[in-house]
Computed example of a mutant assay.
Amino acid sequence: MTLFRGLSAFPLTPTDAAGHVQVEALGRVLERIAAAGADSVGLLGSTGAYAYLTRPERRLAVEAAVDCLRGRTPLVVGVGALRTDEAVALARDAEEAGADGLLLAPMSYQPLTEGEVHRLVLDVAGAVGLPLCLYNNPGTTRFTFSPGLIAELAQVPGVAAVKMPLPGDGDVAGEIARLRGMVPPGFVIGHSGDWGAADALLAGSDAWFSVVAGLLPEPALRLTRAAQAGDAEEARRIDAAFAPLWSLFRQFGSFRIMYALADALGLGRWEPPRPLLPLGPEVRARLDKALDRIAALSPLTPAQGAS
């Protein structure tokens, strides 16, 4: 399975104050990702505010993305929902609209058990013919996929990958090795947590599920390609240029910073869905300095852009 490997860029979903998807604005964001050559787009992930959008708006976003990308970049769509029937319906919507893969987070209000999540994955994977990536995001869902559960679900037809958070002990290489010993060959183990992407990729992670690549795809792709080539010095040089932005991500949350970043890049003044509030002007000066640091990187060469 190659769909979930490499750099997967997770964009914002621009909406108006009423939560309606702004199709033209979304297209501009996706065009940047496709032009940079990212390996896939992760639409309607946490950065894409999937949990705040209605089913019709999520369907509209998928249709707009398929129309914009026109097969140039594979499209992975988040289908997490509070109820299983809704997740199944969203998965079918994504498949019918032309998505290439699915990302499933176990959303909940009542804490979920491993048995409940196992059943959820079986139901969604069995309802469609698209490959599915498990979304292990305990910081948001409050559910942690144990290694044993990942190993069980990796045997389910259609379940092809897992999107992991950075390990709390920092031993990403050890975590990858343990999981690889439990899952079938070819099962994709990728990571989120942008500030740890260089370490994860250099340790052998198959994918970087990247927030920042949603708006800054080119430098994120450079970091990915350097790490994939085993060029630790170059990967860490690029990662160091991102350091001020990583600091903002960790202090304020990458979700909120991405809205400010879209404004700083001149892409649009979109606000996060309420009750979330936009960040104040005091963040902008730090963000501008962070962007200057990234902009100081030398231009991307054709060799670095090749997969």
Results as ranks from 00 to 15, higher is better:
residue 180 R to M: 12
residue 179 L to N: 11
residue 146 S to H: 02
residue 131 P to W: 06
residue 169 D to H: 05
residue 162 V to K: 08
residue 126 G to E: 05
residue 189 I to L: 15
residue 144 T to D: 10
residue 126 G to F: 01
residue 115 G to Q: 14
residue 116 E to C: 01
residue 141 T to D: 11
residue 165 P to A: 11
residue 154 A to W: 07
residue 178 R to P: 01
residue 188 V to E: 11
residue 139 G to V: 09
residue 158 G to D: 06
residue 120 L to Q: 07
residue 187 F to W: 12
residue 133 C to M: 15
residue 181 G to E: 13
residue 134 L to D: 05
residue 172 V to Y: 10
residue 187 F to V: 00
residue 166 L to G: 07
residue 134 L to V: 02
residue 121 V to Y: 02
residue 187 F to A: 00
residue 150 I to M: 08
residue 176 I to N: 13
residue 170 G to F: 14
residue 182 M to V: 00
residue 127 A to E: 07
residue 158 G to I: 13
residue 121 V to G: 10
residue 141 T to M: 12
residue 146 S to M: 08
residue 197 A to K: 02
residue 164 M to A: 01
residue 189 I to A: 15
residue 191 H to N: 15
residue 152 E to T: 15
residue 174 G to H: 09
residue 137 N to S: 07
residue 188 V to M: 11
residue 162 V to D: 00
residue 188 V to H: 13
residue 148 G to D: 14
residue 163 K to R: 06
residue 186 G to T: 02
residue 164 M to Q: 15
residue 144 T to L: 06
residue 184 P to V: 06
residue 178 R to Y: 04
residue 150 I to P: 00
residue 125 A to V: 10
residue 119 R to E: 14
residue 136 N to H: 14
residue 185 P to H: 06
residue 123 D to V: 00
residue 162 V to I: 10
residue 188 V to R: 02
residue 165 P to W: 05
residue 181 G to R: 14
residue 120 L to M: 06
residue 128 V to G: 05
residue 148 G to P: 04
residue 163 K to C: 09
residue 182 M to E: 14
residue 165 P to K: 04
residue 144 T to H: 07
residue 169 D to P: 06
residue 129 G to A: 01
residue 174 G to R: 01
residue 167 P to H: 12
residue 156 V to A: 10
residue 180 R to H: 12
